[in-house]
Structure formats: structure tokens, C-alpha cells
């Protein structure tokens, strides 16, 4: 029983970390622009798909690195082409723009890669390799995913807390007018937030693809989960999104043990609706998710 429990828990944590990274991506862009970027899931898809294409001609680590960099370029282009020139867009307009971008990227991916389901090779071992931890059997890729995502969360947190650019991005998020009055290049900082967010999504997309596989249309589902997580934690708060991501992942994993797995996605939607009705500022919110 406890082995089974552990099995579900690890599966939940693995998915939870992915949701957390996507949720953090939402938060980074939300903080910089006040807008939910619904193309966030597409960055995860792009990371995985580009890496799968590159791994045929390059060693795995290099393929992943290039895929992440390429997705960062896409993130920068999204901001430069679609967002930057809007002088004071309404939130609704920005949301519709990001939804449009996500459709654009998805259809482009369909044209480039077709409908085939793809995956990167396992980083260590193969599909049949398994480790035994606490009686539960799992693929080493689970540990890769957990490790890479944890490192990503830690690095991003450190970046915002201690680096000079990170502090500038926080200042820009906290008060854009005051940031420009300090002489900070606010528009470039917004571009930086898109680049960072795209890179995070892409790396998550790479490490998880051996387990979950990737396809041109996985972005929408991931965006939904990431959005749920960002709302659940309280918009704008990155570490709360991580906690919320793990909660959602584990809930989904255990839900599969008591109801048909087809209802797995219903868990996150129900949770999203419940949180929007009951506690729209999020589970851990100290401050109200509101921007003047």
C-alpha cells in the first residue's frame, strides 16, 4: 500500500513540477505586463519539439540547449512584434493577442512537424530502465524532471532576489512609471521577461518529453494547468505557484486512483472554478492580485 502511495506521489510531483514551471512563466510575464500570456504552453511545446528535431543531428545536451535558446528567441520575437508597440493596451486586448499568438504558434508547429507524437530519448537508460525507491518503481527520467525543474525554480528565484537585472525586473513589475523615472529601460525589461519565461517553459518541455511525449497541440492543456496553478497560488507570486503546482499534480495523481483517468483534467478545472469562486486571490496570497 505504502509503495503504491509513493508511486502516485512521485507521479504527482513530476507533473506538479512541470505545472509549477509553467505557472512561474505565467507569473513572470504577468508581473512585467499585468497580462496573462496564454501562449505560455506553446513555449513548452516548442522546447520539446525543437529538441526532438535537433537530437537527430546533435548530441542530446546540445540539442536541448539550442532548443531552449531558439524558444527564447521566439519569446523575444513575440514581445517585439506583438506587444511592444502597443502604447497602453487594455488587458482584454492583450489577452486576445496572446490567445492569437498561441493559435499561430500551434498551427505553425502543425505545419512544420505534423500530427506525429514525438519524444526525446531518455536522458539516462531507456523506457524499460527503472529505479526502485521506497518500493515504488520509476523511470530515472522522473528524477531528471524533478531535479531540472527544482534547479530551474531555485535559479529563477535567486535571479530575482539577488541579480541586478532581476531587481530591475521586480522594480519594473512593482511600479513601471517609477522604474522609468529611475532611468530603467522598462521596455527591454518586459522583453527580458518574455525571454526568461520562454526559456523556462522550453527547458521544462525538454525534460518532460520522454515521459509525457510531445505533439503540436500539448500547449493548450499545459497552459490551462499552468494558469490554474498561477491562480491557485495567487497571481504574481512565483514560489506560491510552485507550491500550488505540486498540490495540483499530486491531487491529479491520486484522483486517478479513485476515478477513471479520463476525469483527470476535470480535477484541475474544478479546482480552478472553486478557487475563482471562493478565493480569487489565491491560496497563499498575502496581497490582492490587483494592479492599479
Amino acid at each position: 500500500m505504502s509503495a503504491l502511495f509513493f508511486q502516485y506521489l512521485m507521479a504527482g510531483l513530476t507533473y506538479g513540477m512541470i505545472y509549477a514551471v509553467v505557472g512561474m512563466g505565467f507569473n513572470i510575464i504577468y508581473n512585467a505586463t499585468g497580462v496573462i500570456n496564454f501562449a505560455q504552453g506553446e513555449f513548452v511545446m516548442l522546447g520539446g519539439m525543437i529538441a526532438v528535431s535537433l537530437v537527430k543531428i546533435l548530441p542530446l545536451p546540445l540539442a536541448i540547449l539550442l532548443a531552449v535558446l531558439a524558444t527564447m528567441v521566439v519569446g523575444a520575437l513575440v514581445e517585439l512584434v506583438f506587444i511592444r508597440w502597443l502604447s497602453s493596451p487594455s488587458v482584454l486586448r492583450m489577452i486576445i493577442i496572446t490567445v492569437g499568438i498561441s493559435i499561430l504558434i500551434r498551427e505553425a508547429a502543425l505545419l512544420i512537424w505534423g500530427q506525429n507524437v514525438r519524444a526525446l530519448p531518455y536522458f539516462t537508460g531507456s523506457e524499460i530502465t527503472s529505479l526502485s525507491i521506497g518500493g515504488a518503481r520509476m523511470s530515472p527520467q522522473v528524477l531528471w524532471t524533478l531535479g531540472a525543474c527544482s534547479a530551474l525554480v531555485a535559479l529563477t528565484t535567486a535571479f530575482f532576489r539577488w541579480s541586478s537585472t532581476g531587481k530591475q525586473m521586480r522594480a519594473c513589475a512593482s511600479n513601471r512609471v517609477a522604474a522609468s523615472l529611475c532611468g530603467l529601460p522598462t521596455r527591454n525589461l518586459v522583453t527580458a521577461s518574455f525571454i526568461l519565461s520562454a526559456g523556462m517553459g522550453a527547458l521544462a518541455g525538454c525534460v518532460v518529453s520522454p515521459i509525457t511525449y510531445t505533439q503540436y497541440n500539448i500547449g493548450t492543456g499545459l497552459a490551462m494547468k499552468g494558469f490554474t496553478v498561477a491562480i491557485l497560488g495567487g497571481l504574481g507570486s512565483s514560489l506560491a505557484a510552485v507550491a500550488a503546482g505540486l498540490v495540483l499534480g499530486v491531487l491529479e495523481a491520486f484522483a486517478v486512483s479513485v476515478m477513471p483517468s479520463a476525469y483527470k483534467d476535470a480535477v484541475s478545472i474544478t479546482l480552478l472554478l472553486a478557487i475563482l469562486f471562493l478565493r480569487p486571490t489565491g491560496l497563499f496570497a498575502a496581497r490582492v492580485a490587483y494592479r492599479p
Binding site: 531587481k167 521586480r170 522594480a171 512593482s174 511600479n175 517609477a178 522604474a179 523615472l181
Partner: peptide, 11 residues
């Protein structure tokens, strides 16, 4: 120095 101080509250 803008009206209403506009400092960065969470820094």
C-alpha cells in the same frame, strides 16, 4: 520625484 512617492514597495 513623482507624486505619491511611488517607491518600490517590495524591494
Amino acid at each position: 520625484v513623482p507624486e505619491g512617492r511611488q517607491i518600490f514597495g517590495d524591494l
